[in-house]
Design a protein around this nucleic acid. Sequence first.
DNA 1: CCTACCGATCGGTAGG
DNA 2: CCTACCGATCGGTAGG
Lengths: 192, 192
Amino acid sequence: MSVRVRRSREDVVRTAGRLFAERGYHGTSMRDLGDALGLLGSSLYAHVDGKEGLLAEVIARGAALFQALADEVAAWEDRPTEQLRRLVAGHVRIVTENLDEARVFLHETRFLSPAHRRRVVELRDRYEAAYRDALAKGVAAGVFRPGLDVPFATTVVLSILNSLERWYRPAGPKTPEDLARDLFYFVLEAIT
Amino acid sequence: MSVRVRRSREDVVRTAGRLFAERGYHGTSMRDLGDALGLLGSSLYAHVDGKEGLLAEVIARGAALFQALADEVAAWEDRPTEQLRRLVAGHVRIVTENLDEARVFLHETRFLSPAHRRRVVELRDRYEAAYRDALAKGVAAGVFRPGLDVPFATTVVLSILNSLERWYRPAGPKTPEDLARDLFYFVLEAIT
DNA sequence: CCTACCGATCGGTAGG
DNA sequence: CCTACCGATCGGTAGG
């Protein structure tokens, strides 16, 4: 009954993302991945260099989405509230539309080789800086609470956003747009 | 150079918690665990039934700590703000004092057998209910914001608390007591 | 808790 | 992308 079709490298990476998200990197074998694609584990090596390279690619794709968001909101640096609103909305959109990559990014980065991991940690730090800068600018401009502990608030906001992958369900009561709005106002209440 | 001492079952479970937290369940072999304890992988079977039973025990210990907290705060049901304060403070204390178990509980529960996993999910749901009840009582009593979306706020509060294991560092600028206080007030600002 | 092992599975390769 | 493999490692057991 298995449907035999030619598989692209894109298919391999996307399916790897799904399996790594569901079973974890170490819980997924190359034969598991082959099975999911309708081919043998050994045949995967015609598409990719190896298992770790596949993990690195899945994670790099996730990281690129968040990085693009940080770059995008940089243009709004004169309006910190709008910057924060866009960061929250963009994060929710990325996670809800790329749940597998987001999960692998958050849970499996530690299994990357040191060289790959270093690059990902660097991107994560730059992403965090986008939030910290928006909060700091908002405090300086008087639109957020004076004396706000900016590093702490940054951590809490990212805690909320990074937990989305745990509980977001497409069939849940709120659409991604609802979530973006409600999460933004929850945070805004706490920091103003 | 390796120090040979007699190992207790307690040593095995605690070391398994550390390795499962650091490398993940599927990233830890019974030989890895034996090495960390100064004995052979095969010798572990004198102490435990098998690898999955070891995971179940590490997670059950973590779950028991949270369950005890939920039971404890039930006594304060007439004072929802105090109830929430104690839930947050208790959660921070449990995580900061049992970081390995908390990590395994959060990340490796999905690798339990269906029977073991079902019990853990049940406990987690009861723990979540303690937060939901405190918030609902607070809204009913008029101490929290009228019209607060209680299920949503519950999820956000637990998102914040469950992310602690990601960023808490004993050498960080805030003590666990500082964190408990600051996290509580962050949440309180958002829900009042 | 060690010795000595078991069958199964792992990531990966040579050659087509 | 398959055939036919490789050496290494996996969780686990029998017997002491």
